[in-house]
């Protein structure tokens, strides 16, 4: 049974399209890209930078520290052979965003 954690509301993502939330000890970066909410581990898999301070360009999340470009759905870092952990996201009708720490949503 997946355990969901309520972490934010859709309106929190309206303006800047990104935010950082925490579940227990885990900091998660939320991105709203073309109406879909994605959740990735906030600390960049490459170096200790925060993805939630990154930018979204053409549907990819760009970490400004070292320019790694991540697929928000799979966490795959383009051309790097590494993956940022991603988390399943659920958005309720009232705009409540929940994430699960299970890696079931991770592609690899």
């Amino acid at each position: 049974m997946t355990q969901w954690h309520e972490v934010a509301k859709l309106r929190d993502l309206e303006l800047r399209k990104r935010t950082a939330v925490t579940v227990g000890d885990t900091t998660i970066a939320l991105f709203s890209i073309k109406g879909v909410v994605y959740a990735l581990a906030d600390t960049c898999v490459h170096e200790q930078r925060q993805l939630s301070k990154g930018a979204v360009l053409f549907g990819k999340v760009v970490c400004p520290g070292h320019q790694w470009k991540f697929d928000p759905a799979t966490g795959e870092a383009e051309g790097q052979g590494q993956c940022q952990p991603v988390y399943p996201v659920r958005v309720d009708e009232d705009g409540t965003i929940s994430v699960s720490l299970s890696r079931a949503g991770a592609m690899r």
Binding site: A55, L57, F58, V62, P64, G65, H66, Q67
Partner: peptide
Amino acid sequence: GGDDIAVARE
């Protein structure tokens, strides 16, 4: 200015 570099890359 890492953000600007992301723009420049595109």
